[in-house]
Amino acid sequence: MTATDIVESPLGGLRVLVAEGEEDGAVALTAVLRYNGFDTREARTEEDMMRTARETGPAVLILDLDLPGGDNCDVIRRVLKLPNPPEVVVVTAHTAPALRTAALRAGAAAYLLKPADPIELVRLVTRLGAKL
């Protein structure tokens, strides 16, 4: 059980995976998404993220580039090689334009800076999910 299981159980909507190493960040993002009807899971390491993505087949992955065990943009490339890969939304504290460009070139659909605006995040996830 994670801290966000207390907030609200998954609702059965569009599947979203939040890959965030920091508990506070993961809880906040997951809570916002669940309150907006998304079936949201969490992963705290790259290994956990890849396993959960394979098991649950999320439509959208919210990814922090500082995920423990991950190596920035290479993790985006790896997740996009999964069968039926999710749309990847990077949510990070990294402000370097070169990293933003690298993440988008690696296949990320969007690059948001922390703290991500909850309304913008929900709209983006909804839009990406509608493409499927």
Rank of each mutant, 00 (worst) to 15 (best):
T40Y: 10
R41H: 14
A53F: 12
K114T: 10
A106F: 13
G107Q: 09
G70S: 14
R77K: 15
A130N: 09
V88K: 04
P83T: 12
R127T: 15
E120V: 07
A28Y: 04
L17T: 11
L124Y: 06
T2V: 03
A110C: 00
I6D: 04
T52S: 13
N36H: 14
R41C: 07
T2G: 02
A59W: 07
K81C: 10
L65Q: 08
V18S: 04
H94W: 08
C73R: 13
P86I: 12
E22D: 08
V32C: 03
P58F: 08
R41L: 15
V7C: 03
M50A: 12
E87G: 00
N72Y: 15
A43Y: 09
A109S: 15
G57C: 05
V90W: 09
V91C: 08
V18P: 07
V75S: 15
G25R: 01
V27S: 01
A110K: 03
R105D: 15
D39Q: 12
R127W: 11
D5R: 05
A31W: 01
R77S: 14
G13Q: 07
G69E: 02
P86F: 09
E55T: 03
D48Y: 01
E23W: 02
F38G: 00
L132W: 07
V88P: 06
L11N: 11
L14H: 11
L33W: 10
L11M: 08
T4R: 02
V125K: 03
L17M: 08
L67G: 11
S9Q: 13
P118G: 01
T95K: 13
V125A: 07
L99Q: 13
D39W: 10
L17G: 12
E23G: 00
N36Q: 09
E42Q: 13
P115K: 06
R54Y: 13
S9F: 09
G107H: 09
L132C: 00
P86M: 10
G21E: 05
A28T: 04
T95V: 10
D39P: 09
R100H: 13
R78K: 15
V18W: 10
R77P: 04
A59S: 14
A3I: 00
A110E: 12
R34S: 11
R78E: 15
L80A: 07
A98N: 12
R78T: 15
L29W: 01
E87C: 06
H94C: 08
I6G: 00
L17V: 09
V89K: 06
V75E: 11
T92R: 03
V32H: 05
G37D: 10
V122Y: 04
A109D: 06
P58M: 07
I119M: 01
P97C: 03
M50Y: 14
T4Y: 09
V89Y: 04
A93G: 14
L65M: 12
P58Q: 01
V18A: 05
D74L: 11
A98I: 14
V91L: 02
T101I: 13
A19E: 08
G57P: 00
T126Y: 09
G129R: 02
G25W: 00
L11S: 15
G37L: 08
R105G: 00
T95Q: 12
V27T: 05
